[in-house]
Design a protein around this nucleic acid. Structure first.
Lengths: 212, 212
DNA sequence: CTATGATTCAAACGATCGTTTGACCCCCGA
DNA sequence: TCGGGGGTCAAACGATCGTTTGAATCATAG
């Protein structure tokens, strides 16, 4: 049995469920992680899920809502900070997009799993989940797209959206640690993700700048 | 009920199961698609899966094996063809990697779903599946990495692996159509994927060439 | 203290899961 | 023609799923 970093014994029942559910959804998928596994790992009664969240679907949405709001705020704040400088660069905007995800994935309360849950949600073609994400995330993407567009005036709109789509996919995969790259034992999780972000920003900047 | 393109009524029971399973695994995940859904859609008896494949896990592996062998062969053949030309370019090597996946995703027998199944498998952190993929796919990645390395001599090995990881993630997402870009109604599926491949190759080439 | 609402608990619900069974059918070689 | 093996079938297996129930327990206000 692997360690369950997302289980704080002295937290409330509701919060323990959310933390463990996040971890297990990331590890086994939404259909693959049962409420019995979740409640057992969280050391709460099985019925607690339905008592506090109503049903499994609502628990899934709550796992998203808890982190996504925070991530959105950080990303938009970082973007706003960057564009106050009239000479802001493409790399800075990319960092505003990447770094909040990076930081959330390293916070002490175990947000690391959430990035993988997010990647899961992309892979799940479930229409309900996709609509939920679009409703709660779309406006952030649009704001970033506008800033990118101003920085890349030579790029046609269609072309820009294609490339941002590629960046999103690469980011999701990279942050979720799905790739083949395994960090070496002498590299901390923190610096691994830091490198991950730097490589991604450099790569994506070059890709976005490629002549149409 | 959506259409089930992967169901050829006059094929054998075994082949109908494989085709439908591919489609449903892509749509709902491995845990999310039940054998009852598969057999019902394939219009075969429930017990046929266990008769022909033994168990669900073996069916999943067979879905992979059927397409992955072919994809690997096409990719390695395309790579071999490219490097016979001593002046082969980065774009050509990337095309050798991307285009076979593109073509398989458009063949008449419904390989489109397989690319999504592949992306699913990446998202599933299931250790057994990852080992299966590594065993049956790793050597292809290594061959491509060697050619890329020769084309980008200024790039450190570590740096190259980081970037190839990013390319793989972006490719997986792009080919699996997970992104936000929806093709317009006047654009055929074929030309949508063709564009997808071209954008990806251009983007990835620029990203790989970015100075370290 | 007692009463009340919130929370936790063991137990069970019906539905669905993957898998197994044994009878049945069909086709082909002897 | 008969026998047998490959294939299909309806039915059932035990396990596990998400959810519900009603009583036990807790915390807190009167």
């Amino acid at each position: 049995m692997r360690t369950m970093s997302n289980m704080q014994p002295n937290f409330s029942t509701r919060e323990r469920i959310l933390g463990v559910a996040e971890t297990l959804f990331a590890r086994h998928g939404f259909a693959g992680a049962s409420l019995r596994q979740v409640t057992a790992a969280a050391k709460v009664n099985l019925a607690a899920v339905n008592y506090h969240f109503g049903c499994k679907e609502s628990l899934i949405e709550e796992v998203f809502r808890r982190r996504l709001d925070e991530l959105n705020r950080h990303r938009l704040a970082a973007l706003a900070a960057v564009i106050t400088n009239p000479q802001h660069t493409l790399e800075q905007v990319l960092e505003a997009f990447v770094r909040p995800a990076l930081e959330q994935s390293m916070d002490s309360s175990g947000g690391a799993a959430f990035v993988r849950v997010l990647a899961r949600a992309y892979a799940e073609h479930d229409e309900r989940l996709r609509k939920f994400l679009s409703d709660n995330y779309g406006h952030v993407l649009r704001e970033f797209a506008a800033v990118f567009s101003a920085l890349l005036p030579h790029l046609a709109k269609d072309e820009l959206y294609w490339r941002l789509d590629i960046v999103s996919g690469a980011l999701t995969y990279a942050m979720a640690d799905f790739g083949v790259i395994k960090r070496k034992n002498n590299v901390s999780e923190q610096s691994h993700r830091e490198q991950s972000a730097q490589h991604l920003v450099r790569f994506a900047a070059a890709g976005l700048r490629a002549e149409g």
